[in-house]
Amino acid sequence: MPKLHANLPPCYDLARQLSAYLDGELPADLCHDLEAHLGGCPDCRVVLDTLGRTVQIVHALSDTPVSLPADVEARLLSRLTGA
């Protein structure tokens, strides 16, 4: 399978702006160029959508409950309470 965008030079330049675009950190002129390109390039739209979903998944790690191993918690509490 050929690499995506192998024959599409505009995608190469624009694809590396997708992350900054998601963060709202892309200068207005580049933003305009990128949006014009996205309008006509389904591949880049898929990459943008899936990259955005990836970032959401990573963000979700920041407050997803996890269980602390009981022995780790016990050792922490005993250190803190000086027991």
Binding site: K3, L4, H5, V46, T50, R53, I57, L61
Partner: peptide
Amino acid sequence: DLPDSRVAWPEDPLRSTLDSELRGQIE
């Protein structure tokens, strides 16, 4: 670093939350 996969990800409510399987994948 150029995008290789261009396959869309289906909107699946079961995968919209960070369940343990997805969590394992991303970790």
